[in-house]
Design a protein around this nucleic acid. Structure first.
Lengths: 199, 199
DNA sequence: TATATTTGTAAGCAAATACATACATACATA
DNA sequence: TATGTATGTATGTATTTGCTTACAAATATA
């Protein structure tokens, strides 16, 4: 039997992508290493050749989220563009990332509260807090520049912001394939602007 | 050995409560019938005496949510009080229910998208849509009475509303015990009012 | 070309899983 | 008091779980 051999990096990417696909389509509870191997078309042993444990696959995905996703959100929030434009880019980046890696939201929300692994738990909290803090930063900048209403309870708006991933996920689940990233994020952006504008 | 015997109704309530407790503290993946039995202090067989399958326990909990929770939200939304008061009661009922049954949010969100069971999947979608529609109804009533801004994209506000359970859950996980229902729901209420007010 | 290293697989492991069965005991009603 | 039924448990079972191991084959390097 001829075996195609690839580098560990490529295999790790394949495995992580398959994990997210399975989570989105079949849920976390159907994420077994057997199921995972079958989906990619490799043997179960191969998975453990490239990751020490199943948990490490999850950890690696979470690390990606921190570096790729939170990293680019931080870049957007700290740029010197107008707050309004930063907010739009911020929201659209969120929607784009989460709809490219559809399993992420469910992974974050359901792996979030439990899990004995302290490192993972802290990473997850960090992700939530980073998002909240970065949104808050943009809003506070806008208020400081007197573009937005100073009476706004910034902290709470950032909390409401968490509704976006949730609603997005529900939309993604319902609309099979026919989802438009730009429509969705622009709707959310308009709404946020409406909330923030001086009355 | 002396065995205390209780009615099926009582046992079912015990089992369902324990399921929610386990989900909140240890996560869905630690919800085994063995674990469940140990937590209540009964044998595993007893669980299957009162519920045909493990899945049926989940189904029964979802049914409770529909009847108790969505039922009371519907009652609030359809009452003839002022929209503003309805909205406050609505939000506070949400916060109260979800913090009494702490496992519910995680159960709904992670069991939501996958699961082969069509009945369960539909029930979950119904719950999300009911909440969205009932919030929308209150807002539309307020707009019709010219108390709130008619230019508001009602549908999208209802989507943002879904951020409340998520943020609540994160707060509940972080603040061990020292959580105040009224503080939280009133903050969220003020925010919503701010969004809805005529500019 | 020879050898070391990396990547693959098939088979199998102990533990945990949801659930079944056989049997015992409490309790309502005759 | 006798008896049927509902509620309990101890133990078993087939399957699935995450993970290991022994070994084969592909590739890099000498």
């Amino acid at each position: 039997m001829i075996v195609e051999r690839k580098s560990t990096e490529i295999r790790q990417e394949q495995i992580k992508q398959a994990v997210l696909d399975i989570i989105f389509s079949d849920g976390l509870k159907n994420l077994s290493t057997r199921n995972l191997a079958r989906q990619i078309g490799m043997s179960e042993g191969t998975i453990f050749r490239h990751f020490p444990t199943k948990q490490d696959i999850i950890l690696s995905i979470i690390k990606d989220v921190q570096e790729e996703f939170i990293g680019s959100l931080r870049y957007i929030a700290n740029s010197n563009k107008e707050p309004e434009q930063r907010l739009q880019e911020f929201i659209c980046k969120t929607v784009e990332y989460l709809s490219n890696k559809k399993g992420i939201t469910m992974l974050l929300f359901s792996e979030a509260s439990h899990n004995n692994d302290v490192i993972l738990k802290n990473s997850l909290m960090l992700i939530f807090n980073s998002q909240k803090n970065l949104v808050s930063k943009i809003i506070l900048d806008g208020i400081a520049m007197e573009k937005w209403d100073g009476d706004i309870p910034v902290e709470n708006i950032a909390m409401l912001y968490m509704g976006i991933p949730v609603s997005l996920n529900i939309e993604l689940t319902l609309s099979a394939g026919e989802f438009h990233v730009n429509d969705f994020c622009n709707k959310m952006f308009s709404l946020m602007i409406k909330i923030l504008k001086n009355s």
